[in-house]
Structure formats: C-alpha cells, structure tokens
Design a protein around this nucleic acid. Sequence first.
DNA 1: CTCCGCTCGGGAACCGGTTTCCATCCATGT
DNA 2: ACATGGATGGAAACCGGTTCCCGAGCGGAG
Lengths: 356, 356
Amino acid sequence: MTRKSEDVGRSTIRDVAARAGVSASTVSRVLGGVYPVSAATRTRVMRAVREMDYVADARAKAVAGVATPTLAFVLEDITGPSFALMAHGVEREATRLGHLCLVCSTEGDVRHELEFVEMMRAQRAAAVILVGGAADTAEYRDRTRRMADSLASAGSRLVLCGRPTLGPGAPVTVIEYDNEGGAYALVAHVLAQGHRRVLFLGGKPDHTTAQGRERGYLAAHRARGLEPDPALLRHGDFTRDAGHRLMRGALKEGLDFTAVVAATDMVAAGALTALHEAGLSVPDDVSLAGYDDIPFARDLHPALTTVHVPYEELGRLAVRTALGRTSETPDEHLLLGTHVVVRDSVAAVGESGARA
Amino acid sequence: MTRKSEDVGRSTIRDVAARAGVSASTVSRVLGGVYPVSAATRTRVMRAVREMDYVADARAKAVAGVATPTLAFVLEDITGPSFALMAHGVEREATRLGHLCLVCSTEGDVRHELEFVEMMRAQRAAAVILVGGAADTAEYRDRTRRMADSLASAGSRLVLCGRPTLGPGAPVTVIEYDNEGGAYALVAHVLAQGHRRVLFLGGKPDHTTAQGRERGYLAAHRARGLEPDPALLRHGDFTRDAGHRLMRGALKEGLDFTAVVAATDMVAAGALTALHEAGLSVPDDVSLAGYDDIPFARDLHPALTTVHVPYEELGRLAVRTALGRTSETPDEHLLLGTHVVVRDSVAAVGESGARA
DNA sequence: CTCCGCTCGGGAACCGGTTTCCATCCATGT
DNA sequence: ACATGGATGGAAACCGGTTCCCGAGCGGAG
C-alpha cells in the first residue's frame, strides 16, 4: 500500500511538477497566471495538468492565503415559499459575486443554529445570513449579539434578513420589510370594503413578524376609530395547517365575521380550504386576504388579495450590503417597502355578509 | 501595522499557546480531546481559548488531514416546490450525518453547472448531488459522464437525483422515481371515471421526466385499447405559467376534452386558474389531475388529485447511499415508487361532460 | 535506593499549496 | 570580449493546523 500518486487519483502539485519535469513553484505560477513563464514550460505544465486532471486543493490554497470567498445562510426550512425566495436571492447574488454558498436548515432548533454559526466561523465565511423571523426575547438578543460579536472578531459579518434588530452598536447588518405598514394598508383596504368584523389569523405572539402584522391590523382599525373585538384575534403557526385549524375552530364556534386576514399566504391557504369545506364561498360569503404574495397566491381560487413582499430582492440586498462593506462602514439597517396586491378574494361586504 | 495577534482578532493556535504558556501541540491536543493532558494544563489552555474566543481554522485542519466532510447539491431553482423538497431532504440528511452543505442554483445554465462541479472537486466535497430533471441528449450523457469520472478520480462521488441515468459503468449513484408508473396509474384512474378525451399538458419533449410521464399517459390508454388523439398532447415548461398558457390556448381553440392531466402540479395550478377564468367548473365541467403532490395541491380548489412523489425521502436517500459507500460498493440505481392520491378534482364524466 | 515504565508536553516534520528570494542563463550595449 | 540586466525557474519559508517522536519528570516495584 504505497502512498504514491496513483493511490486514488488525488494528485498534488508536486506530482504534476514531477511529470512536467519542473518544480512545484513553476506549476503554481503557471496555474496562477500572472508570473512570467516561458511558453514551452507553460505548455508542458498544462499538458501534465490535463493528463492528470489536476485541480488544486481549495482548502490548501485558502491556508496559503488565496481563499475562495464563502458565505453561509441559515433558515428554518427551505420548504417555506418565502424562505425559498429569500434563499434564492441570497444564493444568486452570492454566486454572482463569486462566493460559495453554504446552507443550513435549523428546523427551528436554536442549538443547531449556534453550532452552525460556530462552524461558519471556523470556515472563515465572509458573512453569515440568518433569514426568517424569530421571537424577540431577551435571550434572542443576547444570543444573537454574541454571535455577531464573535463573527465580527473573526473578520466575518452577521446579517439578519427579516429578523428583529439588535440593540445599537451590534456589528450587524439588518434588512427587514415593513410588516406593520403592509398589514395596515391591507386591513385598511378590507375595512374600506365595508367590513367591520375582520378575523385576524396571526402567528406566534412573540414572533416579531407576527407582531408587526398584528400592529398593522390594529392600527388600521384605530385609524378609523374602530376597536376590534379581541375575540377576532387568533394565533397559531405560520403554516397551512394552522390556518386550517384556526379557521375551522372559528367556524365551529359560530364566530361572527365577514372577512379574514391571515398573517401569511400559507395560513390563508389553509383557511381558504376550511372555508370551502364549510360550504362557504369566498368572497361572496366571506372575504379573505393573505400576506407575502407567494407565487401560489394567484392560483388559489379565488386569487388571493395579499401584500407583496420583495423576498428575493431582500436576499440579494442582504448579500450585497454584507459583502460590500469595509470595517469603516457604519452598521446598516434597511427597511424594504411592501404594497398590497388586489386580486379577487376581497369583496365589498354584501347583504348576505352577516353570518351567525 | 504589525501582524501581531490583536490585528483583527483571528488568533492562531500559537497565539493561544503563548498565552497559555504551552506549546502549540499541547493546545491542539487539548482541543482534540483524546490525548492525555493534565487537568491543570487543560484548564489553562481552555481559559486562553475562551479569553481569545479562538476557533481553529477549518481549512487548515482539512489540509492537516482532519477535514469537515462536505457535500454539495446543485439544482435549477430552489423556488420550485419539488426541488425545495428534495433540497430539504438532502440538507437534513447531510447535516444529520455531520456534513456541511454547499448549494448552487444553476438557473438552467449548463456552464454554470460545470463550473460549480469543478469548484466542488477543488473543495474535495464528499459528494455532489445533482437534483432535478434534465434533457437526455448525447451531450448530456457525455458531459455528465465526464463530471462523474473526474469526481470519482478525486475520490468524490456524483449523485443524480431524479435525473436520467448514464450508461453502465459510470461511477454514479442514481435515485429516481417512477414517472411512467405514476402517470400510468393516474391516467388509468381518470379513464376509469369514463373520460375518453384526456388533454395532457406535458413538459419539454426532451426532458426525461416529461417523457416518462407521457409514456405513462399513452400506456394507460393503450392498456384499454385506446389510442389518444395526438391533438390532445401539449408541451411546455414545468411552470405555472406554461400550464396557464397551454390551457388558455386549448380552450380558445375549442378543443374537445373532458379531463386534463398535467405533468406537474405547478402546471395543473396554472391550468386550473385558466379553467376558472373561462368560467368552467372543476370537476363538474372538466376533471383535472396533477403530478408531484406538492404541499399546495391540497389547497387548490378543488383539492387536486395527483401522484405523490416522495421528494424529501428521495433527497435523504441520495445522500445516504452516496455517503455510505466504499469503493467496493457497486454503482447503485434506485427507483422509488409513487402512488396516486385521490382528492376532489377528478370526477366521473357527467352528462354535462361533452364540451364543444 | 535504583530502575522501570507511564504520563505529560515540547520540537519538528508534514499536509498542499503560494510567494519570496536568489541563482542561472542568455541577449544586449559598448 | 565583458559588464549588465531582464527573463526564468528552483529552493526554501510560510500559512495554520496535526501528529510523530522523544525526552523529562514522577511514582511504584524490586
């Protein structure tokens, strides 16, 4: 069992050098491109490289100072349409900028997230992007702050994409979208159709995205001098199943409402199905609106009125600002705007609107 | 501008050693865990590590022979629900097995794909997983074969996930699902409902996934002694928009059909919307079926009858077989089964069924 | 009281590259 | 013919780790 070059095929630069009859330095110079090498030598080296199908080990290059820049992104579950959109934006922009992309799904497990960030620090990633909402607890701030500091001290950068901001002074880039504003505009639109009892299917109470959207819901009511019935606020996950369950529950209770605003298109999809199952027609019997404008929103029936969030753009922007930084740049906090897109699922409250 | 340790925080193992008053070898041993080190020394070292927030450079470790195993996956667009599902399976299983995950979207660009595979070879990835269908041309086989060989010679492994097989002898692991069988079962179900003119909304003619599903469509007809009208076969992308466009076209032509089978749930979603727009009711006026069973299929209205494909399982299986290999293991080719899931979008052909 | 062996930790070689420094070689200028 | 200098390419140091090899102390057995 020799450890010669033919072992399994992974040949080193010295193997190539030997075959070309030159030194390793010369091979490196030929491959590097810039250093003057005679045409004859270059040809010989290139032939050897081709014959051995040699590719320099990127890790070794990195140690020697010629690193492949790498960027990491962490999300809860790539399967969620809005996460997928962000991920897509991140990935596209990163590879456009010549970066490799490492990805990690945490499945909502914080320990997993911490572990992964630690690995990224070891990998000397240029930036770590955390995408997707989170609960804004003291523990969250503390933990995230610690990640930011430790990444910063390793010359890397933490980016929060659609996540709660940290306190001032944290070495972090934050790109958010306007949850409250979008929800405000959406609910204002629903109220303008004459609806007065609007059921809100929200997310986890401590989740900042959910909170922002709920604030918008309330603010839109108050701007009209309305105070929504607390019984109209329901909370669950940002999933299709939660929407389905919540809607079914409300229907079974005989809750009185003429419109439903879901905190998420996924939630809206589940709610819509529950409505259909109950024999209700949207928007004739009840109006329904979502949030996110995931690609599927158009193909629900009726097409879902919702709030468009530029998720992909968000991801791209995150990468761009994270990478285009010097240590002098101030920490950034960008807030992207949203707008409501009116489709067919919200109608004026009709005479048939009153349900018991 | 000194290059001392305080430069930007990235401290080396020797910095830690100096601070702890030991040698670099000792620090390495403490961190490594197994080698006997006295409790006192260990404590001193650990304190230094903590104080300096030191993390060993993973690239350097890799060069020294202690690599973080890495696996790469390549797909066209993470935004597609079935790709996302596969990606999720791959990612989960990989991290479960302690591997880092590199990801790349090719946007359908073959050059991009080749470049990326080359980078992965340089990164010494344990395996490269290509997910998602492709056109099965000679050029494809050739190119893919070359990738497989070059990865194999670098001690790494190519995995095809839902992609056309290569010729025998290629160092490749292939995990596929049964397109023909699934389509056969689905179309048989539709025919059993009495439909005789079934519109097929297929994919690109050279795309193997599309071909398999189309073969199933034809075979199901022939098994009943039927020969489908060629006018009922339409081809486009596997996208929502293609489905929408194709359906609109067929409707405008006044094509005669009582059921539609789409090659993809996405296509079915677009078709469904086009049907609704034309004032047609599903399944009362026309039946509709999809393929893939993406999570959203349930929330279409009516809920979509479709073929379930275990995408996530596919991804998991791909990494498991790719990683659990020795050089002795024979090349594998696994074919996963599918089954049709009956929901509400296909009904028996009614008296109202005949459309002009 | 030796001698032996075990525990612990330092020095140096090595992993696979890059880059600095230096020795040649060859072509010019005079 | 001889000094000069640019073009080449080799040897060696270095990047940040790991691990082999070995010597120094220490405790217990004879």
